[in-house]
Every structure is written in structure tokens, then in C-alpha cells.
Amino acid sequence: MKKITTHSLHITIILALSVGLALVFNMLRPDPLPMVYAQESQVQLDAQSGEISLKDATLLFVSQRAIFLDARDNYFYNQEHIQGAFSIPPDYFDYEFPKISDQLTDKILITYCDGELCQLSHELAEMLKGQGLDNVYILVNGWGLWKNENLPTTSGSTP
């Protein structure tokens, strides 16, 4: 009986020592592992096509992981745009981009315009990539789809 107690004590000490070492070593790591495992995101980003679906864009909008960039003309942006979206028509890229470039790093960027055949969002995406931003996705016919689902919008010249 005494032997079993002694062995159990040794096992407990070994387990405690291992847990302690693991936690200390993890704290000292430059990229410590969080205590709770994060499941892979359900959002599917296809880097090859560079396009994003409305469902995924909405999920990123709600979780505030994405910044929406409106490629349409200023006139249409002022009338109504996706809530929080910045206005960057490709023709005014050189003027508008420096104003907001600080806010675009480490975020997923979603460009949109109006209509299936609208090329402005594609042009804007290429210009952003030209500035070294990799996380750029196009929501094809974004404005039409967004409005169709009654998702949050706002009007005026500010996001």
C-alpha cells in the first residue's frame, strides 16, 4: 500500500513538473500557443480566383475582419454604400489610397462595384495588389448582391 502511495506521488510530481515546464516554455516563446485550440475559419478565401462569395464577405463584415472598398464613382458612393466601406474609384486611386493605407494592413480587403460585368472592382484589386497588399478579394456584383439581401448600408461621403 505504501509503495502504491509513493509511486502515485512520484507520478503526480512528474505530471506537475511537465505541465509547469510546458507552460513556462510556452510563455517564453515568441509566438506562444493559446490555451484553447482555434478551429479553422469557415470562411473560404480562394487566392487563385481572387473572388469571395457574399456569404463569406458577410461573415467577415460581421466579425469586422474585412475592410470593404467601394470602386464605384463618388456620386453612387455618396448615395448609398456598404456600411463602413471606403470610397476608392480606380481613377482617384493615387489621391484616395494614401489617406487610408494605414488602415488596410493586416485586414482582408474586399473590393466591390455594381453589376456582373463591372470591372472597377477588379481594377481596384489589381491596384491594391500593386501596393503590396496580398489579402485582396473581389465581391463580384457586390453592391447588387448586398442590396438584394438588405445587408447594412449607409449614405454620405464618409464610411
Binding site: L15, S18, A22, L23, P34, M35, Y37
Partner: peptide, 12 residues
């Protein structure tokens, strides 16, 4: 994650 952190140390 707790197992991923502690198990290798237990092995060591």
C-alpha cells in the same frame, strides 16, 4: 492545445 503543449514535455 493543453495536450499539445504538455505531452511533449512529459515525454522529455
Amino acid at each position: 492545445n493543453i495536450i499539445a503543449l504538455t505531452l511533449p514535455w512529459l515525454e522529455l
